[in-house]
Nucleic acid binder design. Structure first.
Lengths: 253, 253
DNA sequence: ACATGAATATTGGAT
DNA sequence: ATCCAATTTTCATGT
């Protein structure tokens, strides 16, 4: 997978290396160097001279990593053009994209390492415990929310947003369900309240609101109760020691 | 900055290398390999055997990069423990964190490259064009929103969220301003409507609502007008050809 | 530790 | 191209 590598080369050599390996669009290129980074686009930033790891992927995406954090210091998703030039005896890398118009510029002051890697396209990847999965599972087994519930619609669009699950309860009352895969916050309560109010207006019927999530913040629970809405605990992933019914329900089919 | 590097070594050597260089907590370690990745925590995922670049930073954060995208395929922010072991003749890397309880497990099937880098702590970094900056600038020069406006408060907390700018207009009417550094969406309109309604309830006074952003989506503008709220164009960054007043206003002091 | 909200959010999906 | 909503969001900040 390692295709080529240079150690402590001259700026001119670095430019040639980058030029060659970026051109093909087949390599992931890394440069470890002391450098300065400028960004201008949706926002703008300046990073003073420091040690960074610059990663360029074959899709034109760029990221500049510091010594900590998952998030790069600077980055740029899928750019349209990437090139390297020699300016005043220094190697400079520029990545540009249109729409939005953005530019990242890296000046390499002292390069330690450059390398080109070839990563074959990844194979299978499966993610479990998403909100979409939760929604499918609860649509199939709405009794997990409450007994006697009938699901009328999923992702029902209204003029104030999409309702995750729209249902009718055992007594025939309309129910709006808002789902969260993680701890529900006040924002989720506001969303639910908005949907419930709108459905009441549109139908003239009484409407109940249920927030279904694995947990809820204390302030959110208070707001929920003030608004006469309900919380129902639902987990996105089966517990390690969950019973077979729960486990089976949320297993990936 | 490159401290150590191994090419195409045995699983046992890989484990030794990882063990040595992870222990100190001073190195950024990378492994380029064909590997499988398992994740279990807030969600769960499985990545089949494929080529990935695994990066471990000294803070315990982990990321597994594929051939495209800024976002890693798998990752883990600041873990509490990282270790490597030999299992059935294969090198295995595990990164674990408590709170939330999460685990990433990488099985290296065929390693191409391992290296340890030392990146000295970064120096100065300045970001311009944030919402906080916009807020400061507009609080100092509220006439950019409308003439005669007086700012009463910033980040004013209410029980339905924090109001970005709370003000009084030339006629003495209360004004709630919601700021967005990028294109405003319907969500911003909902937020603003909620604040305006709450302030009306609390004060009994008439209240105007203004959404200040560089642009707004078409549906959001429609919703804004239905709710009798106003849009005001405000840019987070000075235009390249902006006049001196605009430019000076938003310059980083 | 908990909660909130911004972000150059990124990314995928729907229209 | 636009717009919306999820995200293992991450991350900084305030309480």
């Amino acid at each position: 997978m390692l295709r080529d590598q240079l150690l402590a080369q001259s700026p001119a050599d670095l430019v040639v290396f980058l030029d060659e390996h970026l051109r093909s669009g087949r390599y992931l290129v890394q440069v470890v160097a002391e450098c300065e980074v400028l960004y201008h686009g949706r926002a703008a930033s300046v990073a003073d001279a420091g040690d960074y790891l610059v990663m360029l992927k074959p899709d034109g995406s760029l990221q500049v990593h510091g010594y900590r954090g998952v998030k790069p210091v600077n980055w740029q998703p899928q750019t349209d053009e990437v090139w390297a030039t020699l300016e005043d005896g220094q190697a400079v890398l520029v990545a540009e994209r249109r729409s939005p118009e953005e530019l990242v510029r890296v000046v390499f002051l002292e390069t330690s390492l450059v390398q080109a890697l070839e990563l074959r396209e990844g194979s299978g990847f499966v993610l479990m415990g998403t909100e979409a999965e939760m929604q499918r599972a609860l649509a199939r087994a709405p009794e997990l929310i409450e007994p006697g519930l009938t699901v009328l619609d999923r992702e029902l669009p209204t003029d104030v947003g999409g309702i995750d699950l729209f249902a009718r309860d055992a007594q025939g009352c309309l129910v709006v369900v808002e789902l969260k895969r993680a701890k529900a916050t006040q924002e989720a309560v506001h969303q639910l309240a908005r949907y419930v109010a709108r459905v009441r207006e549109l139908t003239g019927e009484p409407v109940r609101g249920v927030l279904a999530a694995p947990t809820i913040t204390k302030p959110a629970l208070a707001a929920l109760q003030r608004a006469a809405l309900a919380f129902r605990e639902v987990t996105a992933l089966p517990e390690p020691d969950a019973g077979p019914s729960q486990g089976a329900l949320f297993e990936f089919a």
